[in-house]
Amino acid sequence: MIFAIVAGVAAGWISAVSLIENYGFEAAAGQPQWKERRSAADHPAAPYAFGYFINQGQVPPPLTARHFVRGTDDEGSNLRPECLYEVSGTMPSARRWSMAVSGGEGSAATLGAGEAIYEPDGSLRVFLSAQPVPGNRLAIPAVSAPILSLTIHDPQDAGKPLALPGVKRVRC
């Protein structure tokens, strides 16, 4: 009897943790490296999507925003703190965006639309690096699996796929 209860608790706990980590997000259309938070409050995955943030002691992004995360570069390799990455592209039309790198407790570095320096054509280049570099930079924390997040606040095309910037590894 004890074995059945212990096995049941373990199975329930493992399935809950796994679903919170994975079911609350889905691959962004055409850009599978980016995972988008399922934001519809009436979606069956909503409790898992909320749980992802709540369990880390973070407030979920507001429902007026679309929130994306990724832990890999464009080649599918995990982001590493000893490497230099370039996040580049044109941000989707929206009232605001914000970008962050996290690892451990909360965001280690953030960048908002009002703080960024843009290219002459309106595109954006942000370097992810533990070392100082010229231009926009997000400091990668020295953790094994840093996560890059991008939040688009009040996007113009709220229900459509958004073109998101790529993440290219420059050097390690």
Binding site: W13, P47, Q56
Partner: peptide, 27 residues
Amino acid sequence: LLFMATAIATHAAYVLYYPGYNFDSKV
């Protein structure tokens, strides 16, 4: 049945109730 009932109860508690207590204390 005992295994499944325990697993479902644990899963529901972890997803629906535990986050609230955890979040409040972290905030």
